[in-house]
Amino acid sequence: MMRKAAILAAMLVTALAVPALAGEIAPQDRKSGYTGMSAENRAMQDDDTINPATLWVLDGEALWSAKAGAANQSCAGCHGDAAVSMKGVSARYPAFDDASRAPVDIEQRINLCRTRHQNATPLPPESRDLVALSAFIGRQSRGLPIATPDDPRLKPFLARGKALYTQRQGQINLSCAQCHDDNWGRNLAGNIVPQGHPNGYPLYRLEWQSVGTLQRRLRNCLTGIRAEPYAYNAPDYVALELYLRQRAAGMLVETPAVRP
């Protein structure tokens, strides 16, 4: 195992030694992970009746009008028609939450709504219901540009996210930026390194055989560089999410996307 890791590390170092550091991606060069997918996978995302994530969106739609918690209140009871009230909402997340004095991502916002307004227990991270609600809410922003709020209170968290993004981590000693800024479009084994834009989450990943959130994807990246993943809902995830969303500002939301 260690030897395998060492060989992989050596391979990565060799691959990464070649190009000059490219730095941040210019806005006109940004590409959604969609563009690097096979025609079959693109077709799966393009047709809602083929996209398996639709199963989650439909579950989320049912949950939206289901009463929950001691307050016996549904999401629809306050927010009404999601097609109107949730349009563009997830495109703005993570956003600053006054009470927590920190940014929260859309899944955390759903759980805050549950505890504050429905008197219900928060849904466990990556649980089917939470992901389904998030996919349904995210679906209402499909086609709209990512628009992280221009909120001065987010600045320190954004800076933290950027620091994490550029910091070498794990046994392989790699930063996010070394793959996704400096080497996107090149091959890592059989895969094309994507730019790492979070414009389709929650999304159906064929490798997962289910829909997952951006935090689940970040866990995958951390284990990929042989770093220990943070616990779910750790502030560092939200800081990274915030930086990634700002980095992709203006790109169109594809939720619920399909990725290999």
């Binding site: 009746t49 083929i50 639709t54 199963l55 439909l58 579950d59 049912a62 949950l63 649980s127 089917r128 219901d129 389904a132």
Partner: peptide, 15 residues
Amino acid sequence: MTETAQTPARVLVNA
């Protein structure tokens, strides 16, 4: 709506 065999499965048919 957890992933157990007892819950009704969500179906999508396009015909």
